[in-house]
Each structure stands twice: as structure tokens, then as C-alpha cells.
């Protein structure tokens, strides 16, 4: 059985259909890129994977567990912004991934010392040891996102959800972040879902690239139908996708006209 299973998922807000008939199964360790027009429901889909919201219809299951009702430690997440805690130092942001799971959210004594030592090792690994005592606001955008990813991974999630994590970074930093993420994945294989608006980025990092689009379109009621996965590309082999293009969905995306 596959690791992440999405069965006939629909999401509707009031009368607005956002996504519909989404079916997906993902193997453990796969890197799934998600692309699509702005506002088509990519973040909504990620919120469903995160269990921040419940789908109007259908269900999402991760690692064979029954559908989650709220976000938990099985799911790690990094957003475009606001992913780290501004009032905690860089080191404490990493320690938080261990301490927040306790009853009062604090570690003491030996456990705190150990957690701090582990946090320092993590920071050294991701090249942030020189700013361990600083607050996130003093860090560059790229450093903040590196911290956010390391923080999410410290909690050892089963799936990692990234919502345009590099969208606010300049192109040079973005390439560095790609290498960073690739290295981390080589060290501990994890299942990743990444929303991006950069197609090249999606193909470069992903094993599969999913395209969200509205296959049905009513010009008189633009909100009547939602988006679904219209293409599912195989993006392995160094991100040279177009030679390995595999069309999967029966309904073509350009049916709206």
C-alpha cells in the first residue's frame, strides 16, 4: 500500500468549489512538486495533507493511519513566511521542536542541555552556528528558511510539506536552498510535498510534478468547479522532464476554452 493516500478529495468553501476529485497515491520517500495557476487551490491541498482542514468529501491518510483531524508531529511544514518563532533565538527555535511536545512546553536540566547540544550540532550542520544566539529577524530570508526546514525536520515528521518555501528568496539564494534541501534528503530520506510557482524548480527537485488546474469550466459560474490534478509528470533523471513526459489524467486541461 502506498504511503500517502488521497481518495476522491473535494474541498468547497460555501458555494465555491476549490478542488475536486483529487486522487493520489505517493510512495514513501518521494518528492512531489505541485504547480498550478495562482489561486487554483495548491495551498488548500497542502492544508488538507496537513489536516489543518477537513475535506468536504473524501479522505487523506498518511502511513496507513486513519485520517488526522488536526496537525500533528507526523506532518512537518514550512511556509513562505512566518515559519519560525520571532521571539525565540535561532537555537531555541530548534530546541522548540523537542520541547513543544512536552506538557508545559519547557525542557529542564539534563534534557535541556542535551537538546541544546543536539540543536547546536544541527545548526553547525546547516551553517547557522555563528548566529545561534540571534533572533530570526536578524537573519536573511534564506537563513530563516534554512532554520525553518531544520526546525521542521528536528521533529522527525513522516511527511514534509513546503508551501512556496523559496518564493520570497532571490534567485542565487534559491539555488543554494535547492542544494541544501537535496543534501538533507540524501541524509534522511523523507516524503516531501512542495508547492512552487517555479516550474523549473519543481522539475529540478521533484520525483513527480503534479499540475493543478480546472478541467471543467463554466464561464457563467467560475466558482462552480474546482481544480484537480490534470498532469502527473515523472520528473526523475536529473530534472529533464520533457523526454519522459507521461500523461496520466484522461481529461485534458485545455478543455476550458
Amino acid at each position: 500500500m502506498s504511503f500517502v493516500q488521497v481518495r476522491d478529495v473535494w474541498q468547497r468553501y460555501g458555494t465555491r468549489s476549490i478542488i475536486e476529485r483529487v486522487n493520489l497515491s505517493v510512495e514513501e520517500g518521494a518528492f512531489i512538486s505541485i504547480v498550478g495557476a495562482s489561486g487554483c487551490g495548491k495551498s488548500t491541498f497542502l492544508r488538507l495533507l496537513l489536516a489543518e482542514e477537513q475535506p468536504t468529501r473524501g479522505e487523506v491518510s498518511v502511513a496507513g493511519a486513519p485520517p488526522a483531524r488536526e496537525p500533528d508531529r507526523a506532518r512537518g511544514v514550512v511556509f513562505q513566511r512566518y515559519s519560525v518563532f520571532p521571539h525565540l533565538s535561532v537555537r531555541d527555535n530548534i530546541v522548540a521542536a523537542e520541547s513543544f511536545g512536552t506538557r508545559l512546553g519547557w525542557l529542564w536540566g539534563a534534557r535541556l542541555r542535551e537538546a541544546k547540544a543536539r540543536a547546536d550540532a544541527t545548526l553547525a550542520r546547516i551553517g547557522l552556528d555563528h548566529v545561534a544566539g540571534h533572533y530570526p529577524a536578524a537573519l536573511s530570508g534564506g537563513m530563516q528558511q534554512r532554520l525553518a526546514i531544520a526546525q521542521a525536520l528536528t521533529a522527525r515528521p513522516r511527511i514534509l510539506l513546503l508551501d512556496e518555501p523559496f518564493g520570497a528568496l532571490d534567485p542565487g539564494t534559491r539555488v543554494q536552498m535547492h542544494d541544501f534541501l537535496t543534501e538533507l534528503r540524501a541524509e534522511n530520506p523523507m516524503t516531501v510535498f512542495m508547492v512552487t510557482h517555479d516550474l523549473a524548480e519543481g522539475f529540478k527537485l521533484g520525483d513527480r510534478v503534479l499540475v493543478f488546474d480546472k478541467p471543467r469550466w463554466d464561464p457563467h459560474a467560475p466558482d462552480a468547479y474546482g481544480a484537480t490534478i490534470t498532469y502527473d509528470f515523472d520528473a526523475r533523471h536529473g530534472g529533464i522532464p520533457y523526454h519522459h513526459l507521461r500523461e496520466k489524467v484522461d481529461e485534458p486541461a485545455f478543455a476550458k476554452a
Partner: peptide, 27 residues
């Protein structure tokens, strides 16, 4: 307080109490 932070804290295993004490209160 950005929704992202509250969600993030939940994915780190924080209970409602921990979110109140360690994410919201200091801010």
C-alpha cells in the same frame, strides 16, 4: 499572530496550553 506560527507549533507537537504559554504569551 500569523496562522503559520500556530500551525507550525502544532506540527511540533504543542498542545493548546503550550501554544498559549510558549508561542502566544511571549508575543
Amino acid at each position: 499572530i500569523p496562522r503559520e506560527q500556530i500551525i507550525k507549533a502544532q506540527t511540533l507537537g504543542a498542545s493548546s496550553l503550550v501554544i498559549a504559554l510558549r508561542v502566544v504569551l511571549p508575543q
